[in-house]
Amino acid sequence: MTTEPTLRPERPFFSSGPTAKFPGWSLDKIDTRSLGRSHRASYPKGRLKYAIDLSKELLGVPDDYLVGIMPGSDTGALECAMWTMLGARGATVAAWESFGNVWIQDAAKQLKLPNLQILDADYGQIPDLSQVPQDNDVVFTWNGTTSGAKIPNTDWLAPGRAGLAINDATSAVFAMEMDWAKLDATTYSWQKVMGSEAQHGMLILSPKAIERIESYDPEWPLPKLFRIKKKGKLDRAIFEGSTINTPSMLATEDYIAALEWAQALGGRQALFARSNANAQAVFDFIEEKDYLRNMVADPAMRTNTGVCMVFQGDWYESLSAEDQANVPKKIASTLEKMGIGYDFNGYRDAPPSLRIWCGATVEAEDVKRLLPWIDWAYHQLKDGKL
């Protein structure tokens, strides 16, 4: 018998994307002077450039790297990198969760790369990345958004390697330090770790990636949204605020507000600390409960953003597969109806699980208040009361 908790999260937002708005967010924090204007006009274009510059500063991106705003969220940015750069040499795509598997499908079925190595692993694990040839271009997801498994380090990427490293970092940036010296094309979306509005992604290019774009023309046709080259050279205007298509200035201003909040907080190190504290609260909770385990067995590979937990134990294992799948669904839906926590059921293609977003826009106190409710709901369900 578990007593019903009394404290409720003040902000019950635990979705892994779009994630919670930053604490203190409100509509009156949004600069609306760019709305209703051409994105090519000086003030709106300046705001786009400001979003780029502030992103670069907060993330510690090297001066000789370029940062641009792309359409289509992280997917648009990552696929632009794949479509424009892959095919010049052998390629490896490594995946250990659902979004990484999309990049495998892109490489194998859409681009039909001839010299393709696929490395994959089940949810909660990562493949042996030491198998990636240093001459190959490699596409990988820094942090598995739907599995909670991240790369523990970049030791498997040799300094000065011949191939490009294309990094989907959408649920990692602003929560984990990026090893920029080993990354050539890095992408992320506004609605993940910073909790901003969706539809726009960021593409960060190293000098080596720029050289590849300018020296290589892929065999396949490029949609307009992926055409970042002009007269044989990278169109650098894209990286100065002249976006390929019309951006949402409202979404841009929302992203700027989040970046300014992060800057005032103390920059990326302060964001890292908040994510780490939130994740640690969940890790400790999982360790205390004999009916739970972290989906990721190796602590070095556990994310500090979308922490995933799965159920275990005699009662759970006595259930049918259908009933096992309903355990996290029932807990999450019950607590959502009660206004305790929103959107923390596991990803639809992942093993039955709960996934709590622990990024910096979530308050540690809210995470700590949610966890006893999960324990209560589990015991209510086990006792046949839900």
Score class of each variant (00 low, 15 high):
Asp284Met: 01
Arg236Gly: 11
Gln134Asp: 14
Lys21Phe: 06
Glu177Leu: 10
Gly241Cys: 11
Ile356Ala: 04
Tyr188His: 13
Tyr65Val: 02
Pro218Asp: 03
His200Cys: 06
Leu259Asn: 07
Val310Leu: 07
Gly36Ala: 07
Pro9Gln: 03
Gly341Arg: 00
Gly306Trp: 01
Pro44Thr: 01
Val93Ser: 12
Thr32Tyr: 04
Gln269His: 11
Ala91Phe: 09
Glu317Phe: 05
Val102Met: 13
Tyr378Cys: 09
Cys308Thr: 15
Leu111Gly: 11
Leu164Asp: 02
Gly24Pro: 08
His39Phe: 14
Thr305Tyr: 10
Ser130Tyr: 03
Leu35Ser: 11
Phe99Met: 08
Leu292Glu: 00
Leu271Ser: 13
Val362Arg: 09
Met295Trp: 03
Ser320Cys: 08
Gly68Val: 04
Ile356Arg: 06
Phe283Asp: 09
Phe174His: 08
Thr187Ser: 15
Glu288Asn: 06
Thr92Pro: 09
Glu219Pro: 15
Lys192Ser: 03
Tyr291Asn: 06
Tyr123Trp: 02
Ser215Pro: 15
Ala325Ser: 15
Trp156Ala: 05
Ala251Arg: 14
Ile374Val: 15
Gln134Ile: 05
Pro127Ile: 00
Ile256Gly: 12
Arg348His: 13
Pro9Phe: 03
Trp220Asp: 05
Arg227Met: 09
Ala77Trp: 09
Lys289Phe: 00
Leu27Arg: 14
Leu250Trp: 12
Asp122Pro: 12
Trp180Ser: 07
Asp74Asn: 15
Phe344Ser: 02
Pro218Ser: 06
Thr305Arg: 10
Gln324Glu: 08
Asp217Thr: 15
Pro221His: 02
Tyr216Arg: 00
Val327His: 07
Asp168Tyr: 06
His379Ala: 05
Asn245Arg: 15
Pro351Cys: 04
Leu129Ile: 00
Phe272Arg: 03
Pro23His: 00
Tyr216Ala: 01
Arg348Thr: 13
Ile166Gln: 03
Gln380His: 06
Ser73Ala: 15
Gly267Ile: 00
Leu48Ile: 14
Ser42Phe: 04
Trp103Asn: 15
Gly148Thr: 05
Pro133Leu: 01
Ile244Thr: 12
Trp103Thr: 13
Ile374Lys: 08
Gly266Cys: 01
Asn153Lys: 08
Gly266Ser: 01
Lys224Asp: 13
Asp155Phe: 05
Asn304Val: 15
Ala121Thr: 07
Ala297Tyr: 07
Val132Phe: 00
Tyr123Phe: 08
Asn153Ser: 13
Glu97Met: 00
Leu222Gln: 12
Ile331Leu: 04
Tyr255Trp: 11
Ala172Leu: 09
Ser189Gly: 14
Val307Asn: 08
Glu260Leu: 12
Glu240Arg: 14
Pro133Thr: 00
Ser147Cys: 04
Glu322Pro: 11
Leu386Ile: 10
Arg302Glu: 04
Leu54Met: 07
Glu4Leu: 11
Ser34Trp: 06
Ala77His: 10
Ile244Arg: 15
Asp128Gln: 04
Asp298Ala: 11
Ala51Arg: 13
Ile374Phe: 07
Pro352Gly: 10
Trp376Val: 06
